[in-house]
Amino acid sequence: MIEVYIDGASKGDPGLSGAGIFFKNVQEDSKFKIPLGNMNNHEAEFQALIHALKIAKERNYSILSIRTDSQAVDQAISKQFAKREPYKSLLVEALKLMEQFDLCFVKWIPAKENRVADQLAREAIHLNK
């Protein structure tokens, strides 16, 4: 099982945003900083999940335990429901990607346990052009 720590960050609401992704206990490059352009923090959190799933699929990982400090993402995934756009579309995309794995689940963790992904997301904001 691959542990994946994800986080999204925004400088403003909306504002320049970034995603941080950390794959724990893998041999390949495992830290990603992804600039996301202009969006709000919740969108950035969903985008971090989507990007993590795409990277995991490219690397042929089959079992994922995804850790997030975003209660919005955790609850949307567990309930398979988001009330309004753009979250509905992002949730649908994430759920479709999750179906491609043998086992894939999202678990909420406190922010203090997600420091690596948080730092990567903050650094990713500065990569926006």
Rank of each mutant, 00 (worst) to 15 (best):
F23H: 03
F23G: 00
F23A: 07
K24E: 06
N25K: 15
V26R: 03
S30G: 11
S30D: 15
S30K: 08
F32V: 09
K33G: 00
I34S: 01
P35G: 03
P35V: 06
L36R: 04
N38W: 15
N40R: 09
N41I: 10
H42A: 04
H42T: 04
F46M: 05
Q47K: 14
Q47N: 08
A48G: 03
A48H: 00
L49M: 15
I55H: 01
I55C: 04
K57A: 02
K57S: 00
E58M: 10
E58Q: 12
R59V: 14
N60H: 12
Y61R: 12
Y61M: 14
S62A: 09
S62Y: 07
L64K: 05
L64V: 09
S65C: 14
S65D: 10
T68D: 01
T68H: 04
D69G: 11
D69H: 08
A72K: 11
A72C: 08
D74F: 11
I77N: 00
I77S: 02
S78G: 07
S78A: 15
Q80P: 03
F81K: 09
F81Y: 12
A82S: 09
K83M: 07
K83Y: 12
K83R: 10
E93H: 14
E93Y: 09
L95G: 00
L95I: 03
L97A: 14
E99S: 14
Q100I: 12
F101V: 07
F101K: 05
F101S: 02
D102N: 15
F105L: 13
F105C: 06
V106Q: 02
I109M: 13
A111H: 13
A111G: 08
N114L: 05
R115K: 08
V116W: 02
E123F: 09
A124H: 03
